[in-house]
Design a protein around this nucleic acid. Structure first.
Lengths: 225, 225, 225, 225
DNA sequence: GATGAATGAGAATTCATTCAT
DNA sequence: CATGAATGAATTCTCATTCAT
């Protein structure tokens, strides 16, 4: 009797499941709550910047107390890491989903679409760019485990893969395609960093026009041209 | 005799030294101590990043108590501002001094030399790039007075002016020259940011090669080509 | 067996206690700790004056680290505000409770009793007078929200209301009653300020006698006289 | 020999004066510079309040460096003390100079004029009232030597003496006159403190009217009435 | 007499993290 | 799992005062 009571109590929430399924469900719940916290962190980070996204602020926005966060993340930097992972995931989706607008998509149009998706993603979410740079660069050692680092790198590379593929489809060798992808990536990042820090305005230029211009010149350089 | 000497000594130190010269000497000393503090700040910033370059740390490295710093700088952000100003000053000098290597300097060679000087400066002093971006972007209002801001902007523009001038010398209109200068700037910044955050290694590329490649393609696009 | 006991214990503490009651208990505890801090603040303020009642000092006296205080009060000024609110609350009670001594309380006797209660309160707690003046006057903007300000003003007015009511009961018009109340208030404050700063001793006078004298003359001026 | 040398050195700048005359002149110079500092202190105090009137601020306004101040005042509190002495001196003059307006000055009119002069002085210079209370009350021991304290007290009593004299002229005994003077003083102070802290506005009253009213009632109580 | 750099102590506040409950 | 009080170390900044020059 007493035991059954105990069981019932324990399982009150999770009535009669095997240990295994409980683990699964709990990890699902866990995942849901991690997501909740990440949402809070993202909103805090977007509104207040990295400085304002303190653990307390995140906890408050997630409806948790500060201590509770540590059930889901080892420390604040891990949250940032997860945030970045999530951001890169969205980036991947966006780039992957990019289609040449209107016409039957030529390889050229697709290249443009892919690169532009990448560019637009960070242009419209400058904080995500900031996050990426903060983490890769400034994070304290413990925040970025080698595994997480690898994973994030892979995600980033993944997001650029579609561009690379199109470049190959347009006649570049694998090697050249990587090189050109890297150059596109650099140009986009440079434009956006300059834009976000108000430098492009200094030149009375427009980042979109500069981006298009770069793509034009890239395309002109392609063997197919 | 001795007495008179003593008197003369006194006057040598007091009356003999004009008020003006004393002011000069003191302001020189003052300047030296500002420099001392800036050196401390730079070293702290280079080793520990902006977060680690706290006023306490800077003071410690300068051999001062925290309070003493305030005799020379109104607040921490002013130190950062001075650091950046100094950095931009060096950048200007480096770019200005850049000469085409070897041959009688053609306009083309000079263009390359100027852009390369800019590139190399930040490639070899990655923290200075970081400093610039932090300050222009994230500085608290009081740290960056409109005047200082203007001055820093002017210094930055000044550093890029030689590039722009060479582009005009090579046949670009003023408008196109500005645009192209801005693009070069962006590309350099992008390359360096990616390099500093370990991304270029990810692509197994080399930033110098990418830079040269970009310059090559730029030159090929010039009317004179 | 042991397990079941353990379980029961657990439930006794957890499930047995409703969430609601826990909230109540905790808010009670919280209140108690706020009170603890306020006591510390009051004692610091009484012994060392407002300047000496630093957050550090208050924390020390409360047995807390400085940071811990911020769990209970947003900032130092809020503590002062709470202290004043508390003081005014006591003042209100004292004045309200004031009864004419001995005889069946005539309106006249009640007037005297009320005014005297006010006078005695601040005579015997001179620091509370000081606190009030500091806060109303010198508090930094954020310390005194408009709401709190209103509340404190209301409490002060409330403490004087009984006097005003008695004056009306003795035949003064509402307008005259307010005016006379204000005058009484001023006289009391003046006497106490002079007393607290040692000025009345200078005249070899006694504040109590002066107060009584003022009340006598006031009463003589009333229509009922 | 050595002594004479020393003297000659000292007097090198002040060629051939007796020690006595030098002392006098120096003390005159000294006095002038003390005044200079006090002027700076007063202006700082008036504009910035006691908190803002730091030694640095005073020094800056006086055209001195912080250290130089210590040649003229032992510490900051002594400056405040001197400031108060000066303020009381002006108060004395103002009250003394007060004449009944217009008509041949009856004793009654003179009483009013004197009291009003006192009232107006502090009404129009609320900071001086504040200064007085700060110093008498809150000053650190070393700031207010017994002698200075005595002097300040005497000055204050002196400022009220004219009122007391008029009260005697109007038939009050010496004892009663002191008492009534003290009461007038208290009422004035009370009104002004309440006014300065915004309390009188709370009652929608006007301090001037309240003052006149008090004087009216006082006069009505006089034997001559 | 004057300088002004420097000290040293102190101010309020913030925050990631821990841990008893 | 969750709480939230508490810590402890950090942050920038202010200031009266001292003292070698």
């Amino acid at each position: 009797m007493e035991k059954s009571t105990a069981v019932r109590k324990n399982t009150a929430k999770k009535s009669g499941t095997t240990a295994e399924s409980r683990v699964i469900r709990e990890s699902t719940l866990n995942q849901a709550r991690r997501t909740l916290i990440l949402d809070a962190a993202r909103s805090a980070f977007f509104e207040l910047g990295l400085d304002g996204a303190s653990l307390r602020e995140i906890a408050k926005r997630a409806g948790y107390t500060p201590g509770a966060i540590y059930s889901y993340f080892a420390n604040l930097e891990e949250i940032y890491g997860a945030l970045l992972g999530e951001s890169l995931h969205r980036l991947n989706q966006v780039v992957e989903a990019a289609k040449a607008s209107g016409k039957p998509s030529s390889a050229l149009a697709l290249l443009r679409a892919r690169a532009e998706a990448f560019y637009v993603f960070y242009r419209d979410n400058p904080k995500e760019l900031e996050l990426g740079f903060y983490l890769f660069d400034g994070m304290k050692p413990r925040g970025l485990t080698p595994e997480l680092n690898q994973e994030l790198n892979d995600q980033l590379m993944g997001a650029l893969k579609p561009v690379q593929i199109q470049l190959e489809a347009l006649g570049l060798s694998a090697e050249e395609a990587v090189l050109e992808t890297c150059a596109v990536f650099a140009h986009i990042v440079g434009l956006l960093v300059l834009n976000n820090t108000g430098r492009i305005r200094l030149f009375r230029q427009n980042p979109d026009a500069l981006f298009e211009r770069y793509m034009d010149s890239l395309i002109r350089r392609l063997p197919s041209a």
